[in-house]
Design a protein around this nucleic acid. Structure first.
Lengths: 346, 346
DNA sequence: CTGTTAGCGCATTCAG
DNA sequence: CTGAATGCGCTAACAG
């Protein structure tokens, strides 16, 4: 393919009748350049349609103006919220004249520091972080720039943005309690994630148990993957075997299987069963019935994660930025007053 | 941040007691190297944890091993199918040791050729292509490597992957006809896209009209954006004002608003109204009722688009790859026998 | 099969 | 405020 006669700085310099370095400084502003020479340089640039060659710049300056974002799983295509992070990060990087590199690699710690050390990127955004995350530890140890979408146990000196799962679950349970529900379930993240120490899931479980206790409810905890079949199976089991349970909170996309199972068992939402989900509002609204939910502003989170990283790379050593996004519960159609199901008592 | 003592090829050469170029050739295989020297180089590499510096390599070799993918709109976060393309492309690039660059930039023709000419990427993947697309024309003119997810009028010499919208719509209409529906609607892509010459939309309209004609049905064409409010408005208008219409085909995500409108008008799907959509199956299954649909295998499409581009970059000048994905209609719950709606006749 | 050398395009030091 | 010179780390001729 065409490597099209790439115009170099040297040509600009000749054309403008100045030194190579002057062009460089005129461009970067790292040294003052007289208005006149700057104009001439500018004109030459436009006339020749010059574009700085990024790899050359990266080699000389030792920075790539690139952020890397690692996608967690290969089944990534199934989890919309993560896709939305990416969109947000892409927006932010574009806005700041950075590039965003996407990688689905196994994302083992070495792979990711490798990317930085090969000069492909200046910083990394990590998602789906664990309470004790080996990737984070390696990045810290090697003193790389990074930011997280999610939480770690040790937040010391690290930048992250996350949603307040604790508050989200608490509010959801409280809402169900107010509607008179006495036995409620939590569709938490999958067993695997919980075992691995996925922070959101652990926070969710903890606050679920606290809320249930405080409000004098009976709580049923159900770890559950986000795929339809999985959620369907878990939901069906719950609905068939725990008739006293009249409402549930899902930490994400599990509501799909839950709604399907309810329908197959001829249970109506919200008449027979109430559902609250932590999920991006644009999805909550597309479902029938629309979901009462706590909005997970994933686009915003992705944007913030990228921006804080860019700021850090630009600014040097400022203190880390740590953002926890809190959202109020929005009541839509999927929740309603508790009503005993056939064969059950409230 | 740490630019960590980056190990260079020179150090490897010294350590292995060979020439710099020998290390390079041992790595690239572009020249035969004796087994013994290769081993010594390999050992030195491991001992020093050497990683080739990408920008340097890009500068010297004039290739970045990077693909760029441009996201169309800023509201991109709302259209899952496009996100799935990205996931597929990311998978493919990772698999082939390429990097994937994401950009939300206005994606004006100059921006995108600029990216290539700055050496940031070797090729581009474009989505949401128009029948006559200025971006494509510029890329062709400048002889850049690219592939499309979508269609152009002039497919001469260009690589693309697309879904067969013509067949998808035809099958959908035929299905409704078999169920006895006599008046059916097409929720096509938005007016804007159609006017801009969006190929999928034009194919859809054309084949809709043909199918309707052949089968002796009455067809109603409704351009409609993919957002819930927009689709809701269009659907509500249709359902209220055209009671004879008992079924619809959507080219994408518009079913959300359609289902919501039907529900609000107390129309049941599929008893009172049938819906067929062209949409990724993982979404079709999550909806209640599950949608009869033609699967849009977006992940696969993204993967293919990246792979054909990589092959082209590697192989030189082979002929373009052109793939049209055909899928059969999968009948799920959202379609059923036609039944006259109150106040309407079939 | 191996070594030497000259750039790739830009940033940046050092003189002026 | 400007110019000349050096080198970033690697690839690819060019010589053996």
């Amino acid at each position: 393919m065409n490597q099209a006669r790439t115009v170099t700085m040297a040509e600009i310099a000749r054309r403008a009748g100045v030194a190579l370095s002057t062009v460089s400084y005129a461009l970067s502003g790292k040294r003052s350049v007289s208005q006149e020479t700057r104009d001439r340089v500018q004109r030459a640039i436009e006339e020749l349609d010059y574009r700085p060659h990024r790899p050359a710049r990266a080699l000389a300056s030792r920075t790539s103006r690139t952020l890397a974002l690692f996608l967690p799983s290969p089944q990534w295509s199934l989890v919309p919220v993560q896709q939305t992070f990416v969109a947000g990060a892409a927006q932010a990087t574009s806005d700041h004249d950075y590039a965003l590199l996407l990688s689905t690699a196994p994302s083992e710690p070495e792979e990711i520091t490798g990317l930085l050390e090969k000069g492909r990127a200046d910083g990394v955004i990590l998602m789906e972080t664990l309470l004790r995350d080996p990737r984070v530890e390696r990045l810290k140890q090697r003193e790389h720039a990074f930011s997280l979408i999610g939480h770690c146990e040790d937040t010391d000196g690290i930048s992250f943005v996350d949603i307040d799962f604790t508050g989200a679950v608490r509010k959801s349970v409280a809402h169900l309690a107010e509607l008179g529900h006495r036995t409620v379930a939590l569709f938490n993240f999958s067993e695997d994630l919980l075992e691995a120490g996925y922070a959101g899931g652990i926070q969710a479980l903890r606050s679920f148990e606290e809320a249930v206790e405080e409000l004098g409810l009976r709580g049923i905890h159900r770890p559950c993957g986000h795929t339809v079949p999985e959620a369907y199976a878990v939901a069906r089991d719950l609905l068939e075997n725990v008739p006293s349970c009249t409402g549930a909170v899902t930490t994400g996309w599990q509501f799909t299987g839950l709604l399907a199972a309810a329908r197959d068992l001829d249970l109506h939402v919200p008449e027979d069963f109430s559902v609250v989900s932590v999920i991006a509002s644009q999805f909550a609204e597309t479902v029938t019935p629309a979901l009462t939910s706590v909005d997970w502003p994933a686009f915003e989170a992705g944007r913030l994660a990228a921006e804080m990283l860019i700021r850090r790379l630009a600014g040097g050593e400022d203190p880390p930025t740590q953002i926890v996004i809190r959202r109020d519960l929005v009541v839509r159609e999927s929740t309603g007053p508790a009503r005993a199901r056939v064969g059950a008592t409230l």
